[in-house]
Design a protein around this nucleic acid. Structure first.
Lengths: 131, 131
DNA sequence: CCGAATCCTTGTGGATACTG
DNA sequence: CAGTATCCACAAGGATTCGG
C-alpha cells in the first residue's frame, strides 16, 4: 500500500479550520459527516476529481465519499461531470446553491472560532465540579 | 397513560420552523439531534423545568433529554439549577454562550427556508434523471 | 481511475422499567 | 418530579474486495 501523509487534512466535524483542531463541541454539521468538508474543498470554484477530493479528506474511503457526493448531487449542491475518456475522468464542482451554503457555514465557523475558548473552559469547569 | 397531543412540536432536524416541515435536506445540525431544539425552547430566556421541555420535544424520552441537557450544560450552553424542595424542582436556562449560538442558528434556518424550494426541485430533477 | 458491492463495527437515539 | 438503569434498533461510517 502506498504511504500517504495527508498534508493539511480537514476535520470531519466541519466548520473547522486548523485552529479548531481539538474541536471543542461537536460544532454545527451539515447533513452527513463529510458534506461540509467537501464544500470547503470546492469553495474556490475549481472542479475537482474524485481522487483529488480524497486527499484533504483524511483518505476517506471511496464508499463514503461516493455516498457524500451522491447526496450532495441529489440536493443540487454540486454537479458531477463524467468525461468520456480513457482513463475515465469525473469532475465535481459546486453549483450556485452549493456556494450559497457557504454563507451560513462561514457564520457557524466564525462562531465556533470565537467561542471555542469559552467552551473549553466550560468543559474544564464541569470536570472540576464533577470528576 | 395520559393522552398527549404535542401542540406544535418542533422537529428534530432543527432549524425548522413549521414551514420546513417536509424538511428538504437534512439541514444544519448542532451536536446531537435535539440540541438545537432545546435552544429554541429556551430562547426567550425563561428557565424551564425538565418536564416542560419534554412537551415541545415530541415527548422525547427522559434518557435522551438528560443526555442532551448534560452535554449542553457541560459545554456551557445552559445552566442547571436544582432547588432543594419537595417535590424536586430543576430548572434549565440558557447562558450567554448558549444564547449566542442562536445567531448562526438563525442564519442557517434562514438559509434553509430560502433555499428549500431549490433543493426540492433538485431532488425531483435527480429522480427524473435516474429513476 | 472511478466507483459498486459486500460485510462489519460503532454511535446515537429510543423503549421500558425502576428509584430518590 | 426528575431522573437512572437496561436493553435494543438502526443508520452512518469504515475496510475490503470486485467491476467497467
Amino acid at each position: 500500500m502506498t504511504e500517504q501523509s495527508s498534508p493539511q487534512p480537514l476535520s470531519p466535524t466541519l466548520f473547522d479550520d486548523p485552529d479548531c483542531a481539538g474541536s471543542p463541541s461537536r460544532p454545527l454539521r451539515v447533513g452527513g459527516k463529510w458534506t461540509a468538508v467537501v464544500l470547503r474543498c470546492l469553495e474556490d470554484g475549481a472542479p475537482r476529481r474524485f481522487s483529488e477530493l480524497r486527499v484533504p479528506l483524511h483518505w476517506i474511503t471511496p464508499k463514503v465519499l461516493t455516498e457524500t457526493l451522491r447526496s450532495m448531487e441529489r440536493d443540487g449542491f454540486l454537479t458531477r461531470t463524467a468525461h468520456d475518456e480513457n482513463p475515465p475522468r469525473v469532475e465535481y464542482a459546486l453549483t450556485d446553491l452549493g456556494r450559497s451554503l457557504l454563507t451560513p457555514l462561514d457564520a457557524a465557523c466564525a462562531w465556533t472560532r470565537a467561542h471555542a475558548p469559552e467552551i473549553t473552559e466550560a468543559r474544564a469547569a464541569y470536570e472540576r465540579a464533577a470528576p
